[in-house]
């Protein structure tokens, strides 16, 4: 009995040492970069990522804070300030360098900003942006979640993954949502007015409380066209294989 006791102690101890070593190695392999840039009220952020999550939030400061968590420390990351704002092009900066792994971005900027976000793969989250433009494009797989958006132009598209929009449509604004396989959900206030063209070949378009007598279905229910309220915003929703849902806030 006494001779076996040390083995009982050593095994868990070795496991703990192994785990700590592994976690430390992973932490060292990753690299986090944080940068601040001065910005006016109406700034434009352009971000083109290869792979990874992009999260954009607003705050009450006239500056942009970018935090990039890189899976591999060798990723080239060179944000450029322009007359109108900030450009981050991970694709261009790392062209010809093969797979550079995920880069997860967290961006904080003024609420009146415009954001133009693009990634080959990964999720895009944007919340409370009130500027002119919100564009979120995932070339392949990744959900898009837009919360509290009040922009004149919104474009959200992916190939595989869901698209969720919570916000309001401005009069005269343009709004386009597109997905290959995912479900598109639009959560809108009751008094929202827009002219809609919604297309889902799977025949799964749920207008909920937004159905109005001014609307009609076309192509055996694969398309819904018509006006909701004053109909002054233009809204186009398309999914090849998924569903379209309209939900009241």
């Amino acid at each position: 009995m006494n001779r076996r006791r040390p083995a009982h102690i050593i095994r868990p101890a070795l496991s703990v040492v192994f785990l700590v070593t592994l976690l430390t190695t992973v932490a060292w392999a990753q690299k986090s970069v944080s940068r601040h840039y001065p910005a006016g009220k109406n700034v434009r952020l352009e971000l083109k990522n290869l792979s990874g999550t992009i999260t954009v939030e607003t705050w009450n400061r006239d500056e942009i804070k970018i935090t990039a968590l890189m899976e591999t420390p060798t990723v080239h990351f060179n944000p450029r300030q322009t007359d109108t704002g900030l450009v981050i092009d991970i694709v261009g900066d790392n062209r010809g360098r093969g797979d550079v792994g995920d880069v997860n971005f967290k961006v904080q900027l003024p609420a009146r900003s415009s954001v133009d976000l693009e990634t080959r793969r990964g999720q895009i989250n944007v919340s409370n942006v009130q500027g002119d433009l919100v564009r979120a494009h995932v070339w392949t797989s990744g959900d898009i979640q837009l919360y509290g958006i009040n922009a004149t132009r919104v474009f959200a598209s992916n190939s595989t993954g869901d698209v969720f929009f919570d916000g309001d449509f401005a009069s005269g604004g343009t709004y386009e949502f597109k997905s290959g396989q995912g479900t598109i959900t639009l959560q809108l206030p009751v008094n929202c007015g827009f002219r809609l063209v919604a297309t889902a070949p799977a025949q799964k378009i749920s207008m909920g409380k937004f159905w109005s007598p001014n609307m009609k279905t076309v192509g055996e229910g694969r398309r819904v066209i018509g006006d909701v309220g004053d109909g002054r915003a233009s809204v186009t929703v398309t999914t090849y294989q998924g569903n379209i849902n309209f939900v009241r806030r």
Partner: peptide, 25 residues
């Protein structure tokens, strides 16, 4: 050939989604 296996798989899967839409139409 230069892509990571994950990127290849993701690309192929998404291309299939689009091809399905083309074929159905």
């Amino acid at each position: 050939a230069r892509w990571s296996p994950e990127m290849r798989e993701t690309f192929e899967r998404n291309l299939t989604v689009i091809d399905t839409a083309v074929n159905d139409s």
